[in-house]
Simulated scan of single mutants.
Amino acid sequence: MNALLKSAFLIGFLCTSASLMSKDKDFSLSFKNTEAKTISFEVLNAQNISLVIYNDTYGELFSEKLEKENNVTKSYDLKDLNSGTYYLVAESDQKIEKYKINISNTNTVEIEKTPFAEIFKPEYTIAGNKAKLHLSGLKNSATISVSDFSGNVYYSATKTAADGALEMTFDLNPKTSDRYVITVEEMGNVFNKIVTLN
């Protein structure tokens, strides 16, 4: 980064060891016994949760949005599905959980009750020109970049956090651009946040 960009765009980095910012808002999902080819599960803290069942061959098969329910029990009948591997994805504003469902040739259904992927989405606090990024549940590393709508990249780095929580503060200069894009890439997932400065 050249001196002009450094003076126009200041980035501060702070890593904290104990941040439970989103834990009280997270949903939890638990499976009940499977009967025939019907799967049942309970979602606790089901606030704005999207549920999707899909297959790599057929794409999306079921989708549903849970709005403002504290606890809800859902059941899906999979009797019309062919043998193969299917996925149940539960997504909120805070995280994504992915579960694997296997339907055998004998029409038995097996569910892996522990998610094979759990991705915590980046959370932001915007105050004036400062954008604070909070990322919890970081298992490996995340690549974070800041750019504008003209394609200029002001910051790009791969970060890890020993305790799984990462916090960064970006001081965005309105004289350089009035809109920035903060991109977080983790485990093949890309999350973009557009920050518009007044």
Rank of each mutant, 00 (worst) to 15 (best):
K6P: 03
K6W: 09
A8S: 15
F9H: 15
F9T: 13
F13A: 15
F13I: 15
A18M: 13
L20N: 15
M21Y: 12
S22T: 14
K23T: 09
K23R: 11
D24K: 15
K25V: 08
D26Q: 10
F27S: 13
S28P: 05
L29N: 08
K32I: 06
K32F: 06
E35I: 14
E35F: 12
E35V: 14
A36Q: 07
T38W: 00
F41N: 00
I49E: 08
V52M: 13
I53W: 00
N55A: 07
D56V: 00
D56A: 03
T57Q: 11
T57L: 08
Y58E: 07
Y58Q: 10
Y58L: 12
Y58N: 08
E64M: 07
K65R: 12
E69G: 05
E69T: 12
N71Q: 09
T73R: 06
T73H: 00
S75A: 14
Y76C: 01
D77V: 06
K79V: 09
Y86D: 03
Y87T: 11
L88G: 02
V89Q: 07
A90F: 08
S92V: 03
K98D: 02
K98E: 08
Y99C: 04
K100G: 02
K100I: 01
N102W: 06
I103P: 13
N105S: 12
T108A: 09
I111W: 02
K113W: 01
T114Y: 02
T114M: 03
T114R: 03
F116G: 06
E118M: 11
E118S: 13
I119V: 13
K121N: 05
K121Q: 06
E123D: 10
T125P: 00
I126K: 14
N129R: 02
N129E: 09
K130V: 15
K130I: 13
